[in-house]
């Protein structure tokens, strides 16, 4: 549950008054709230936890962390979940909402 993964910010938008962003997690896309990293800019990397960017990190760090992340994807898949903790089967129907 405390899984936090690095992603690259590719879009900034607003949703119900909150600053939000769309992240590229090495090919998987998801949105996250940017309120805790207000200074973030497009193209920067952040660590994202349960739908919130919690820290900006540099690109090199992001790449390093991808290695652990592969492991996490595997571990999650073994439990029938994607890296965001969503069940793999349900992912398709939910996709609209999460892939924006």
């Amino acid at each position: 549950m405390c899984l936090a993964i690095p992603g690259k910010l590719i879009e900034i938008f607003e949703e119900s008054g909150l600053k939000m962003g769309r992240f590229d997690f090495a090919g998987a896309f998801n949105k996250a709230c940017l309120e805790y990293v207000p200074e973030i800019e497009l193209g920067q990397y952040a660590i994202v936890h349960a739908g919130f960017a919690i820290n900006i990190i540099d690109e090199e760090e992001a790449r390093k962390t991808y290695a652990v992340w592969d492991e996490m994807i595997q571990a999650a898949a073994e439990e029938g979940e994607d890296i965001f903790g969503m069940p793999l089967e349900e992912k398709k129907e939910d996709k609209e909402g999460y892939d924006k």
Binding site: M1, C2, G17, C33, H49, A50, G51, I54
Partner: peptide
């Protein structure tokens, strides 16, 4: 709303947002 310090800000934001809306 379970979790440690890592998740608390997210859950706080949810309550705050519900309050704002």
């Amino acid at each position: 709303a379970v979790g440690f310090e890592t998740t608390a800000p997210n859950n706080a934001m949810a309550v705050w947002q519900a309050h704002r809306l």
